[in-house]
Design a protein around this nucleic acid. Structure first.
Length: 604
RNA sequence: CGGGAUGUAGCUCAGCUUGGUAGAGCGCUACGUUCGGGACGUAGAGGUCGCAGGUUCAACUCCUGUCAUCCCGACCA
């Protein structure tokens, strides 16, 4: 016999009453609606825009305290705990070990790794008085510093490695702009894991174990997800994947090839265009100068000259490690600063200010061009392929037309410098790429030695030589996973929870609480399921049937058991999956067993 | 941090242009009738109109400032 505990299967039924001393039974499985707190709303709150935010408010999962801070109400918190439990099980299965670290941290750790500055305003940090001193704290946005500090003190030899540790804990980030309800908040629940090893092989093994665990976690949560190649970003390192949930309201762009399943985020995604070095045409006529008064943008010049943006080469002036640099892109493309940074081998790249632009082009912003410019140029593959281009003339209110790359300005190499776009060729198979919106729910990276070096976390090998420990870090936004489920699993009537993450597995609806026979059957089914360890909610409110049906659809409990006088006359109850249109008509005496069998089949 | 919008009852909103006793629907309380897809009737409770100044005999309404929330953008290990 299997027993449904939130996300867990038990070998035997939990026992209740004074004899039950098992401290692991954290859940109270069963609940009567009249005794809990589920404030549903018929109307859509004015402040909520995206479906998950609207539905989570309406179904009584969350309430807002202020921008970016939400209370998890009883119903919502049950889902948070179910997802947490799935994460915990899969982390444990993958060999990771759970611990719990402080959210309150000394700022010095962030100073040592340089992340006080890297995070900037995103890091909550403040001083507090302790006796006659003032101490400076941070609220943990993540825990690389704390765990690496711990490991640096406790691990000294290769014999203690490898190890992967994780925790599930509240993280704090001062979001400049919290939005979309619980999808982007300044305080959120995250699972963060850190692997420590002596070699790249150990790192790769730990990384693969986490990657596979993530796939299992998101599958078990009933999410459609896409692992995508990602930049490792300011955290450093050389390899990472993001786990994205495709959703129209997702803030991230995923570049995806349906033909070969290449997937990457937009920062990372390569464009499959080939390098292009057009031969010089010595006989070609010189470019012609045209007046473009006050037209400094591609759109303005394009409509003025009646030429498509694809015929333009735009010249963006950057400052790369303090040196000016011109980047040439086709007019309809957008720059990718990460690619530019790698192409020129600089550590920092940012758009130049107006003074620098004036200096290298001799013109104000909006009229830069490659012909005669006073700085090095980097040319994108597609910019080089424009055969007769419109470019800025490096003179105010003037552009050049008929400019031929390789003839009117010279270069010896072309690069991939731009963001991939819909229909661009796939870098692997050259078929057209698609762009989908996604919600980032997980991220795995190979960190390397950034933190172990700056926090002095080393081990000695067999030859007693000291090396920095090689690290990986792996995050899952637990509360964001719950929001992503709601965002992607709903219909016009409300949430349609997957069984694994639903606040309750079963909802019993006695249609008339004043009817003794109805209540007798409802209580009997309720108690049978409760004793079987099924988490069941019974809507025992004295409300009309329509009212209860609407609320049931809204909160979206997967299995609904309807018990009414009409059915009882025929000796049946109705058992219906939220996701399905038709109800099973089940004899009263078999109802509890049938429900358990349905759950077992669904979990199998 | 730039741009835009909104703050009036628990929720969704009207009223403001043109200053003069604070409104509706839903929700809530009581009673009655209802009872298989958000019922109906009757009687109620509930608001310093975000806050602070100013103009005025008089401000929800006009002016100034401020705070909060939402949206777009920038930012986002």
């Amino acid at each position: 016999m299997l027993w449904a505990i939130p996300g867990v299967l038990l070998k035997s039924a939990p026992k209740f009453g004074s004899g039950n001393l098992d401290p692991l039974f954290l859940f109270r499985f069963a609940m009567r609606w009249s005794q809990t707190f589920i404030p549903t709303m018929k109307e859509v709150p004015a402040d909520a825009e995206v479906p998950s935010h609207q539905l989570m408010l309406r179904s009584g999962l969350i309430r807002q305290l202020m921008a970016g801070s939400y209370t998890w109400l009883p119903l919502g918190y049950r889902s948070v705990r179910k997802v947490s439990e799935i994460v915990r099980q899969e982390m444990d299965r993958a060999g990771a070990v759970e611990l719990f670290m402080p959210a309150l941290q000394p700022i010095e750790l962030f100073e040592r790794t340089g992340r006080k500055d890297a995070f900037g305003n995103v890091l909550f940090n403040f001083e507090a008085r302790r006796g006659d001193r003032r101490q400076h704290f941070a609220l943990g946005p993540t825990h690389e510093e704390v765990i690496t500090d711990l490991i640096s003190r406790q691990i000294s030899t290769y014999r203690q490695l490898p190890i992967t540790l994780y925790q599930i804990q509240t993280k704090f980030r001062n979001e400049e702009r919290p939005r979309f309800g619980v999808l982007r908040t300044s305080e959120f629940l995250m699972k963060d894991a850190y692997s420590f090893g002596t070699s790249l092989e150990q790192l790769n093994t730990a990384y693969d174990a986490m990657y596979n665990a993530y796939c299992r976690i998101f599958e078990r949560c009933g999410l459609k997800y896409l692992p995508v190649e990602a930049e490792s970003g300011p955290i450093g390192g050389d390899a990472s994947h993001e786990f994205m949930v495709p959703a129209g309201n997702g803030e991230d762009f995923v570049v995806h090839c349906p033909a070969c399943s290449y997937a990457a985020n937009q920062e990372k995604a390569e464009v499959g265009t080939q390098p292009c070095l057009p031969a010089a045409q010595p006989d070609a006529p010189a470019p012609e100068t045209v007046d473009t008064p006050e037209a400094g943008s591609i759109e303005a010049v394009s409509s003025l000259l009646n030429r498509a943006p694809q015929d333009f080469i735009k010249t963006l002036i950057y400052v790369a490690d303090e040196q000016p640099l011109a980047v040439l892109l086709r007019g309809d493309h957008s720059a990718n600063e990460g690619k530019i940074r790698r192409a020129c081998g600089a550590t920092t790249v940012e758009l130049a200010d107006a003074a620098t632009i004036q200096q290298v082009t001799g013109a104000p912003v909006g009229f830069a061009g490659p012909v005669g410019i006073q700085c090095p140029i980097l040319v994108d593959h597609d910019a080089a392929a424009v055969t007769s281009a419109v470019v800025g003339a490096n003179a105010v209110d003037q552009h050049l037309i008929g400019v031929i790359p390789g003839t009117h300005f010279e270069f010896t190499e072309t690069f991939d410098l731009r963001n991939a776009e819909e229909s661009d060729p796939c870098p692997r198979c050259s078929r057209p790429l698609e762009i989908v919106h996604g919600i980032e729910v997980g991220h795995v990276f190979k960190l390397g030695t950034k933190y172990s070096v700056s926090l002095d976390a080393t081990f000695i090998d067999k030859e007693e030589k000291s090396h920095p420990i090689i690290m990986g870090c792996y995050g899952i936004g637990v509360t964001r996973v719950v929001a992503s489920i709601v965002e992607t699993c709903h219909d016009e009537n409300g949430i349609v929870w997957p069984l694994s993450a639903a606040p309750y597995s079963v909802q019993i609806i006695p249609l008339n609480v004043a009817d003794e026979e109805v209540m007798k059957v409802a209580n009997s089914v309720y108690e049978s399921l409760m004793n079987a360890g099924v988490d069941v909610l019974m809507d025992d409110r004295d409300q009309r049937p329509g009212f209860k049906f609407k609320d049931a659809d809204l909160i979206g409990i997967p299995l609904r058991v309807t018990i009414g006088g009409r059915g009882l006359k025929e000796g049946i109850t109705e058992v219906r999956w939220r996701a399905e249109a038709d109800a099973h008509r089940i004899p009263v005496a078999e109802t509890a067993d049938f429900v358990q069998q349905q759950i077992r089949d669904a979990l199998a």
